[in-house]
Write a protein that binds this DNA or RNA. Structure first.
Lengths: 248, 248
DNA sequence: CCTGTAAGATTGTCCTACAAACTTCAAATA
DNA sequence: TATTTGAAGTTTGTAGGACAATCTTACAGG
């Protein structure tokens, strides 16, 4: 598939950079820990001991601590002096604020997308929607989470504003676990699917006003759900057991 | 001013916390370096060598590196593997994107402020405006920068959304140097003063639509100016010398 | 003048160490 | 018995040294 000809093909403009960034160990560690938090492997409120994290990740304490500072800056963990890192816990009010912020940023991104409508972005968005449709019946919550994130990433990317996309990515990381829990309620997912499809259509149609309206409605809906999940202590709606969350 | 009686006064509810967070060294270092970047003591594009920073700050390399990771997450420095930290350089396009993002966030904050109008927030905003008026004639650019930042902080705070305020603070840090340079053009400051006053009045009047309009206009103006400054290589408009920026 | 190599410098990572602060648990006291 | 005290152990915050990998610079050679 990727012969020398293809490689030459990719050499049009000055794109000769050799992979650019050989990843540093600390960034790998940050990625791993971030994923563990996002997917609920580390629960909100859980104490994280540096020693254990070193053993889990196989890196030294200095490298680990640098990774922790990154996660701290991203708001995924909070650190009290001499008490170590704790996985961030959101109050219902904080969820409201995060979703209000998400609403502003994401609806703006969608509007910009509807204005620009660059073909490659449109195609990418359609691809994420197709992936969602494919998972509709038999997708696991984790697969749905990832597919949904890809959809929102495509929207953010379509805005053409990298800082906006970056900001939204960080915001989504902070609420990923809530979304993950929410996705276990399969009955409600159908409504969300319809909303995502309509929002995509509005973008592709270039209808900024409709995009704005649909997005605001959608976020109001998922925001309410999110608050409920946090109010219930990050538990699945039906479950009474505090530790019933399937760890990934 | 602060006798034992005052101290007892502060002991009403459970407020006996002893300063809450004894600041860690790394956060102090991060604060110092952040200030150095914001005020142009470290210029955009400048290479920062860890050894030098250790000597400048008087801390060990691990602590310094943890601080660097924070600044990296904030976008104030960028790090290429084995090449060390570099003070972030913005291209004109990046400035456009940052100001677009600022426009969305800040006008939303101002609108929320106009909706809530909590008395203490209104008072705080008025105070920052008064400070600006006082500095109008004889304030140094650095004083004006700080006073202006306080104004914008007051607006962000008045939104009632801490995450929004946090986000805006980080964004302002990334453009602080540009604003600082811009403030050396005293002739244009008068226009900005009038705009800030009108925006404040719109907020206090609770006029969300007017607030939105004024804010968008203001940001379009300062955004254009910001782009020009970056296009000129972070130089003062009149100056031909690349290093003419007064370091703080 | 260009090329290739070697020396020096800087970063990335790890290890060890130790003081400061927190947590736990048992002993002492009311 | 319940509460307080205190001492041990644990964990974090910070420092210093060490070494490999990589980058930069200077120099020798064509």
């Amino acid at each position: 598939m990727h012969g020398p000809a293809d490689q030459l093909e990719g050499m049009k403009d000055g794109a000769l950079l050799v992979a650019g960034q050989a990843v540093s160990l600390r960034s790998l560690v940050a990625d791993r820990l971030r994923l563990a938090i996002i997917t609920g492997r580390f629960r909100p409120g859980q104490q994280l001991r540096e020693r254990e994290l070193c053993e889990l990740t196989g890196v030294s304490r200095p490298s680990l601590r640098e990774a922790l500072r990154v996660l701290e800056a991203e708001g995924l963990i909070s650190t009290m002096p001499h008490r170590g890192p704790v996985v961030a816990v959101l109050t219902p009010e904080e969820v409201d604020h995060l979703y209000a912020l998400r609403g502003v940023l994401e609806s703006f991104a969608a509007r910009q997308f509807a204005r620009l409508r660059r073909p490659e972005d449109v195609a990418a968005l359609k691809a994420t929607m197709k992936r969602l449709e494919d998972l509709r019946e038999s997708g696991t919550p984790l697969e749905l989470l990832e597919a949904g994130s890809a959809y929102y990433r495509a929207v953010a990317s379509g805005s053409g504003n990298p800082y906006l996309a970056e900001n939204l990515q960080a915001l989504h990381n902070r609420i990923a676990l809530i979304r993950f829990i929410s996705l276990h309620e399969r009955s409600r997912n159908r409504m969300t699917f319809a909303a995502l499809r309509n929002m995509m259509k509005a973008i592709i149609a270039g209808d900024e006003a409709l995009t704005e309206r649909l997005w605001t409605e959608h976020l109001a809906a998922v925001g309410t759900r999110a608050r409920g999940i946090v109010e219930a202590g990050y538990r699945l709606p039906g479950s009474t057991d505090a530790s019933a969350l399937p760890l990934v």
